[in-house]
Structure formats: structure tokens, C-alpha cells
Design a binder for these strands. Structure first.
Lengths: 251, 251
DNA sequence: AAATATTGTTTTGTGGACAATTTGTTCCTA
DNA sequence: TAGGAACAAATTGTCCACAAAACAATATTT
């Protein structure tokens, strides 16, 4: 059996090799990003440079750059001489992320309403449509993805790139929070009354939309973060305690 | 004369060499960050890897990492095969940054008021005190620095790290905007009625503080961004047109 | 047998070498 | 003399090798 596997196919441009330099890094980044955000890689999973380098068919140098970027976005955790792991948000981080989302998404609504043109609203409707579709056939992953996408695209209507980029980061971190603390059904279930806010926006009701958004985000946070309180480290301790206790009893 | 100069002293730990690995990168980052944000390096300045590597006495590897990080923060611009330059925010970027600051800083005020303890308020007062001091002796650089610091520290009172980090990034980008578009006196002059907002916060008046902040940020934006409208690229074009016109006339 | 020391393996950090690309200069030609 | 091609210099992108640190396993000591 051959120990050496072929490297991962990096999307479209599958020519025998080469890619315009930075496009390759970008492709690797997207792959890893998707793997983390779509919860194919569990929080805490180690990401050894060699393994990734071999998997993508590049040297460690490129991998390091990508990992650095993901670390900056708080999707991976890099510790000195210990390498990178998929980030495990603490409960405080999780709360901060959702509080930040409330501030940003509610704060940007006025601009969103102001700049909402019919075709932009239609594009948003399309996302909601696909969201329902995914929910209908029980595709949880796609459902979560589209839910996040909706929030980001909504912000993008404001045409403020600084805000949109920041929110995109918060949304991706939310996915990690869901992966870490969420109940199996959280984040997608009662798949969004996203329709409602579109009506408010189309009607030009900024105050109504803001209020809706505030409630919506509080609801999401409630169903996600409050489900489980303890971070993994303490979990481990608890497990060990339980085992020790049982052991003592069985003796 | 010796062509090789000694490397830049990286702060405290001036032992003949070594520094705990990542601490060195951090020191280099801080140096470059300060140089850019405090406007020692003009926007558009080229930042060649070799030069920086020699200046700091490390290899290009470390420099690249630092430049990547600054690029994520939008303080430097990296283009493929062309290296890094100090970023030159466009007018749109400038407006986005200030709009984002209004959203974030007004949005976080409620939490700030809620979590404002006497000692935190006192720490803020101290910043304002030093601000006045710097303004009094005409130290423009320190004045701008402390003004930014005040806004960031104010947000930090909320104890929301996601928001605080984002705002810190926005504030540093604001410095670049001032450097690019600001009138010589902008950003520091009428050195802040920062006292006022502290009174409102200490009094627990969240609505008043939010209103004050909104006005304050609009005022800053007005004195900075509206002074000059055109980004450098277009400036250049206009200058060339003017020159060409004058040239034609003089012939 | 438990705790600690030691050794070997794996993984990361850093510097340097080489290839690829861009930039600047010189030379040639129309 | 202007335009362009070929060439030279400088700078960045990528990879690889070696050093250093962390981790795992075994041996040693008490």
C-alpha cells in the first residue's frame, strides 16, 4: 500500500500544477476556513504543519501563513512551540461575540434600510429561499451556512466594508461557538424568521428592523450558549473526577 | 565608514541577544505599528523586507510575519511580488472607518456605563489629564495618541474583547486617515471635550453619553475627512492635468 | 511501586538558498 | 530622437535544512 497520498484538489484550476502564487494560498485558506466553520474539524483538533503541507502539496511556509491568518481571525489557536489547533471559544468569548453582533448588526440596520434597493432585497430573499430548502431536506450544515450568509449579506447592503468584514469574522466565530457549545439542533432550528426582517426592511421600517434583529440575536444566543456552560478543560476535570469516584466505589 | 549599522534596540530586554522567540516578533510588530500609527512613516512608504530584516537584526522570515499581520489590520498594503507599503486609505475607506466607529462606540456605550466603576473612570480621567498636558505643550503626536487611547480604553470598560479589539483597529486606521487626509491641526485640536463624556458616564446617563459620542465622532470626521476629498491616485491625475494645462498655456 | 531522570522521537522556529517576478538601464532601430 | 527590445539589478516567493523545544517512552532511583 502506498503511504503517500495525492494532494488535495484545490478547486477550479486543476492544471497539473502551478497557480498564480497567492491564489494557491487563498485556496488553501478557503479550504481550511470552510472545514473549520462548517464543523468538519472539531474544536481542539490539532493542525500539524507537516500534515497540512503534505495534504495540500505545498511546503510548510505557505501553511504557516494560512494558519497565521486563521489565528488572527480567532478560528485557530497558535501557541508557541505547540502549533495550531482549531479554536475552542470560552463562554466569555462566546458571549462577547454575540454581544458584538448585537451592537454591529443593530447599529448597521439604519444604513441597510437606507441603501436597500429592490434587487438587493431580492438577492437576500434568494438566500432565505435556499435556507428554507436546506431546512426542508434536513441539511443542517447548509442551513447553518446560509443562515450566517444571510446576516453577512444583510450587512453588506450597507456598503460599509469595515463593518461587513468584522461581522463576517463574528459570524464565522459564531459557527465555532455552535460547534463547541451548541445543542445538536441549535443554530438552524426554527429556521429563521429571516423573512420577517426583509419585510420590515423593504417597508423602510428601520426601528422595527432593529428591534427584530435584537430579539433574533438574543434568541440565537439563548439557544446556543446557555445550553452548555462549561469549557472543555473543566469538562475533562469533571470526567476524571467521575471516573475516580466510580473507581473508589467499585473497590 | 561602516556600511553595516547596528540593529534597532527592541525595548526593555536588551541582553546581548535572544528574546523568548515570539516576544521578538511582538517587539518588532509594536515598533512598526507605532511608526505607522504615529505617522513617522508616511502613507505609501515602501517597506522592503531586506531593509527591515537588517534594521531589526532578524531574517526576512520574521519580518514577513509581522508585515502579514499589519496587512490584516489594513495598516500596510501587500501586493503580489511588489512587497509592502504603508497603507493609503481611500476616501471611502476613511468614511467606512468613521461610520464603523460611530456604530461601535455608540453601541457599546450602554455596557460601558453599566460597567463603569469609580477606578475605571479615574483611569480614564488620567488619560484625559495627560491629553491636556500634551496639548498644552503642543505635542501633537502624543496628543493624537492619547486621544485614540481614550476611545479604546473607554470601550475596554465594557469588558467585551471582540469589540475592544475591533475598535483598536479602527482607531489605528483613523490615525492613518488623519495622516493621509488630515489638516496639520486635525485630530487633536480643540483637544477633546473628553471630560464631558466622563461626567455623563459617571452620572450613569447612557443616552446622553451615546448622543455625545455620536456628535463627537461626526465632528472628528468632519475636521479630518472633509478637508481633502481626493485620494492620492486621483490627486496625481488632477495634478498632472493641472500641470499639463498650465504648460499648454505657458507655451 | 511511585516519582523523577534520561533518552529518543516528533513538531515547531529560524535562517539561508534558489527561483520567479518586477523594475530600471542600456542599447539598438526606425 | 522616440520607441522598443534585450539585458541587468533588485526584490519577493517558495522551499529546504538545521536548531530548538515539546512530547512520549523508558530507565533509574528512592
Amino acid at each position: 500500500m502506498s503511504k503517500k497520498r495525492t494532494s488535495i484538489d484545490l478547486g477550479s484550476m486543476q492544471g497539473q500544477e502551478a497557480m498564480p502564487g497567492s491564489a494557491r494560498d487563498e485556496a488553501i485558506y478557503r479550504n481550511l476556513y470552510a472545514a473549520i466553520v462548517e464543523n468538519h474539524l472539531e474544536p481542539g483538533t490539532k493542525l500539524p504543519e507537516d500534515t497540512l503541507a503534505e495534504a495540500f502539496g505545498v511546503s510548510r511556509t505557505s501553511i504557516r501563513k494560512v494558519l497565521q491568518r486563521l489565528a488572527y481571525e480567532r478560528l485557530v489557536d497558535i501557541r508557541l512551540n505547540r502549533g495550531a489547533t482549531v479554536a475552542q471559544p470560552t463562554v466569555k468569548e462566546a458571549r462577547d461575540v454575540f454581544a458584538a453582533r448585537r451592537i454591529v448588526e443593530c447599529g448597521v440596520i439604519a444604513q441597510v434600510v437606507a441603501k436597500a434597493t429592490p434587487d438587493k432585497v431580492e438577492a437576500l430573499r434568494d438566500i432565505v429561499r435556499r435556507e428554507h430548502e436546506a431546512g426542508g431536506r434536513g441539511d443542517r450544515r447548509e442551513s447553518i451556512y446560509l443562515s450566517g450568509e444571510f446576516h453577512v449579506e444583510l450587512a453588506r447592503v450597507s456598503e460599509n466594508e469595515a463593518i461587513t468584514d468584522f461581522l463576517a469574522g463574528l459570524v464565522s466565530r459564531s459557527s465555532l461557538v455552535i460547534a463547541t457549545y451548541g445543542a445538536p439542533m441549535a443554530g438552524s432550528c426554527r429556521h429563521s424568521e429571516h423573512d420577517d426582517v426583509l419585510e420590515l426592511i423593504a417597508a423602510g421600517d428601520a426601528d422595527g428592523a432593529r428591534e427584530w434583529m435584537d430579539r433574533h440575536l438574543r434568541e440565537i444566543e439563548r439557544t446556543v450558549v446557555l445550553v452548555e456552560e462549561a469549557p472543555t478543560a473543566i469538562d475533562l476535570r469533571k470526567i476524571l473526577d467521575d471516573v475516580a469516584q466510580r473507581h473508589r466505589r467499585e473497590r
